[in-house]
Design a protein around this nucleic acid. Structure first.
Length: 316
DNA sequence: ACCGCACCCTGAGCGC
DNA sequence: TGCGCTCAGGGTGCGG
């Protein structure tokens, strides 16, 4: 946050932190898992009575009219996570697939969170004036329930998120091609998947059919912790490096889930990045800052169209 | 088969 | 003050 300009309202430290989170808070596996844990108790066991949507867009892989037809009257039997996908099991054995994309927010009606406001509002609104979020044009899906309780809302500014209804017994390529979950990543898996591959190590980690759930932030972090340069050809990884990468992927994911869950009190984490893991980041969004291990400025390059951060000394 | 890259989208931030 | 530009990236799909 720019501290040179006077704020219209004294800015508490939490606001500054929120702004930092917003910059880098995109849903990867930990954010999706935290969202799942928070939303599941508010979803499972309830019967959908109404489906309200924003105008059709490519956000809807299943178009709104069909979505309404398929969902109304269904009870939610469970909420699972597959990589970065959330899958709600319905009582007729069909499924509702949700992906948060880059900016997706799944939360319960009545939530009030700074994250649901524009940065201007966050900076100027007095904390005591903050009220529960009301649906806006980015709120694409609202599920109402027969019990009359709070609705579950899906908001997504950039519409990179997805909603898809999957018929009973049907497979969906999005799910079936996912590799093992990142929380269970093993060196064996990475070793086998990387042999003979010329793709950059980072791009291998981002390939959801190899490991499901790794995104840009945690790929950079795991590579740093493993001492592997993101550009290294996957096929050149040693067995030990594969073991280290797998262990560090599990580590950063688990750590982020823990911190993500711990900082959420009375509202649902809307886009999942309310945790404090960003305080532990070693390289992501730290371009030019000193490596926490050797002091060398962190470098940033573009790899696979993604910002990629690494220490040129610690990562070989 | 594998790999690189364009594209979808909107808001923040910045230079002028 | 405001305009126009760049950047952010998950996943899909296509061309080489």
């Amino acid at each position: 946050m720019d501290t040179d300009k006077p704020a219209k309202w004294p800015v508490p430290s939490v606001f500054m932190r929120v702004n930092l989170w917003f910059k880098s808070g995109m849903p990867e596996l930990p954010e999706v898992e935290v969202t799942r844990r928070k939303i599941a108790p508010r979803l499972v066991g309830r019967v959908i009575a109404g489906v309200h949507t924003a105008p059709d867009s490519y956000f809807f892989l299943t178009k709104p009219p069909e979505l309404k037809r398929r969902l109304v009257g269904r009870a939610v039997a469970g909420l699972e996570r597959h990589g970065k996908y959330l899958v709600a099991a319905l009582d007729d054995a069909s499924r509702l697939l949700l992906h948060l994309g880059m900016t997706g927010q799944l939360f319960v009606q009545g939530s009030s969170s700074l994250r649901l406001l524009s940065s201007t509002s966050r900076a100027t609104l007095k904390p005591e004036d903050q009220t529960a979020f009301t649906p806006d044009g980015h709120t694409h899906l609202r599920l109402a329930f027969e019990d009359g309780g709070p609705e579950v809302w899906f908001r997504d500014v950039r519409k990179f998120g997805k909603v898809l209804w999957i018929a009973r017994g049907a497979d969906d390529e999005r799910l079936s091609r996912l590799g093992p979950d990142a929380l269970t990543a093993t060196g064996d898996l990475l070793w086998a998947a990387s042999r003979g591959k010329t793709v950059a190590a980072k791009n291998l980690l981002l390939n959801q059919s190899v490991i499901a759930g790794v995104g840009n932030i945690y790929a950079d972090e795991a590579l740093f912790l493993s001492g592997v340069r993101p550009t290294r050809k996957a096929g050149k990884l040693t067995r030990k490096e594969c073991d280290a990468l797998a262990a560090n992927i599990r580590k950063v994911m688990q750590r982020s889930i823990e911190t993500g869950g711990s900082s959420i009190s009375d509202y649902i984490s809307p886009d999942g990045a309310d945790g404090s893991y960003q305080d532990e980041r070693q390289v992501y969004a730290r371009k030019g800052q000193a490596c926490r291990v050797c002091g060398t400025p962190i470098r940033k390059i573009t790899l696979g169209q993604r910002g990629t951060h690494f220490c040129g000394v610690c990562q070989k």
